[in-house]
Amino acid sequence: MGVAQEALELARGGAQTGEFVFRVSDVQECAASGQEDCSESACAPASAHPSSGEKPFEIATVVRLGVSMPYVPAVPYVVALGLCQFLRALDENFGICWPYDICYKDQVVASIKATAGYQEGMFAVVSIVADVKALSSAFGVAGNTELLAKKVSELVVQSVGVWEQQVKRARSFAGPIALILSDYFDMVPLLGQQVYKVYPSGNVALTARFGGIDVWGHAILVDQDGKEILVSEDEASVVPAV
């Protein structure tokens, strides 16, 4: 069972905000409700791992949500922004690869996903797969993966909490990521650059300028004729044109 599924089971069993499960490589290390009951399990599929070749670090954190359902799709963007802002304060070469991967220069070092559910209230399980070396160095916890997991989980909770306060102060709903869009823009190095729209099959659909991101999280590509093309995260990825 993957860490995200384990955290989902915890959430469905009543786990509260901040409880988490983590793993490094193929050895699972657990830290949920302060427990240290650990067991071995297989690691996530290779396709889910960042690309630099370091050991994959996986963590899934439960977050009880205090926002209405239309805002829930924003959660992975919110976490990506919070994590990237933290990393960017240490090294400006960190950025967000749309929609919510974390990159260092041109290399993805962390991938973020969120799965929502409802059990004793709405919740989200935020899962992060990252290069353990990249995160350990940034968080200053080299060799201590349990402490790294704790710090990453705390950052996830903090990021969502700050955003929830923004949501509560907002008077109208303009789109899931409208409230963070300006700050999010600042973290996306490919904005304004020539990019490829790449289908999941690997086929390149077109070359265009990365013009922006809308309040629903769609990438806005602008072709050579000035036509805007919306791209959803499920439809295709956006990568630098070479």
Rank of each mutant, 00 (worst) to 15 (best):
A4N: 14
Q5T: 14
E6G: 13
T17W: 05
G18L: 08
F22S: 15
D37R: 14
E40N: 07
A48R: 08
H49V: 03
S51L: 15
K55S: 15
L65G: 10
V67K: 11
A74H: 06
A74T: 02
L90S: 05
A110Y: 00
S111Q: 09
K113Y: 05
A116Y: 04
Q119L: 07
G121K: 02
M122V: 09
M122K: 04
V125D: 09
S127V: 02
V129G: 07
A134Q: 06
L135K: 01
S136G: 06
G140S: 06
G143F: 03
L147R: 12
L148S: 08
K150H: 03
V152Y: 06
E154Y: 06
K168T: 08
R171A: 06
G175T: 05
I177K: 11
I177D: 12
I180H: 07
S182I: 05
S182Y: 04
F185Y: 15
V188N: 08
Q193F: 01
V198S: 07
V198K: 13
V198D: 08
S201A: 06
G202V: 09
N203H: 02
T207A: 12
R209E: 00
R209H: 02
D214M: 13
V222K: 10
D225K: 01
D225F: 00
V231D: 04
E233T: 05
S237T: 07
V238A: 11
